[in-house]
Design a binder for these strands. Structure first.
Length: 293
DNA sequence: CCGCGGGCCTGAGAGC
DNA sequence: TGCTCTCAGGCCCGCG
């Protein structure tokens, strides 16, 4: 499910419930996520205060008073729900009953802020991990990530350099988290349509300049930043699983130009093309063969 | 080193 | 009220 805008939406929803709050109770109903939760997962969290909740690419990172970092990833189908006091149980003393939660609520935090936070993930491609803050540079899940697409480091020159000599398609290059970290299938398709670049073009041809330097990576970078910013503002895209932490749907799916719109007209001004679906690297790509070159 | 396909899981929806 | 097949927002790993 979640690409950068959805994860950022989740972060913003979790922050008021988690930041400066303590883990009073931690329930690991199922530990067999993408990687098994450590045996001492609950013990290492309990009593710790969250000093900050950040995001790196599609990872949520909670800094703890113990010096540990709690890393959380939503995989394809993960979501977090924040329940305020009394929403799921008798007000006052908290009695944790498994029946208060759904089948796929694998991890539940009871915070000193009065919030109960449930991590739900039907497919269990998500994960949680604890490691010491001082070892963050060595964390294998984070080590190879490219720049944040909304950061200053991600610009036309940087992208051109990263694409130079790449034999793969632009589509695959943008999905490669080592080149830029946070895009997924939806927003790559959307950004390519916005910048009128064909997903089938080889990445190397983006770097090759026929005129001004970064003639193509410039508009592409701008399109990526714009679509991510717009999607965050809309609370992300709700297709199947994504919800904001209060249960509300995101609504960026209503503004898709190409994603899951095969056969519909291309929205590019003056373009009479029809959106096509092709498969690249085993995944659907939606684009307009008329205006995307 | 690089690029590709398989695999990890469950559930929704289409088609029969 | 079924059953079977395809597909899904991610990403690690092993292969050639």
């Amino acid at each position: 499910m979640p690409e950068l805008p959805e994860v950022e939406t989740v972060r913003r929803g979790l922050a008021p419930a988690m930041e400066d709050a303590r883990f009073d109770e931690v329930f690991a109903h199922r530990g067999d996520l993408r990687w098994p939760l450590p045996e001492d997962f609950a013990a290492r969290l309990k009593g710790q205060t969250v000093t900050g909740l950040g995001r790196r690419a599609k990872y949520l990172l909670a800094d703890l008073s113990s010096g540990d970092v709690l890393l959380m990833h939503l995989g394809m189908s993960g979501s977090f729900r924040v329940l305020r006091d009394g929403a799921a149980q008798t007000p006052g003393v908290f009695h944790h009953r498994r029946s208060d939660f759904g089948k796929h609520d694998h991890v539940v935090f009871r915070m000193s802020s009065g919030a109960t936070i449930a991590f739900n993930d039907p497919r269990r491609f998500g994960c949680m991990k604890l490691f010491p803050r001082r070892a963050i540079e060595d964390e294998p899940l984070l080590r190879a990530l490219g720049p944040e697409p909304l950061g200053n480091e991600f610009d036309a020159g940087m992208l051109a350099k990263a694409c130079a000599g790449k034999k793969t398609s632009v589509k695959a290059a943008l999905l490669d988290q080592r080149i830029v970290a946070g895009l997924g299938n939806i927003y790559v398709c959307e950004a390519l349509n916005r910048s009128r670049i064909s997903p089938r073009r080889s990445a190397a041809t983006l770097a090759t300049r026929s005129g001004a330097p970064q003639e193509r990576t410039g508009p592409l970078v701008e399109a990526i930043k714009a679509v991510l910013t717009d999607a965050i503002e809309a609370g992300g895209s709700s297709l199947r699983d994504h919800r904001q932490t209060d249960g509300e749907l995101g609504y960026f799916q209503h503004r898709f130009r190409v994603y899951d719109r095969e056969g519909k007209p291309c929205p590019t001004r003056g373009c009479k093309g029809t959106i096509r679906r092709i498969v690249q690297g085993g995944r659907s790509t939606f684009f307009c063969p008329v205006c995307q070159k």
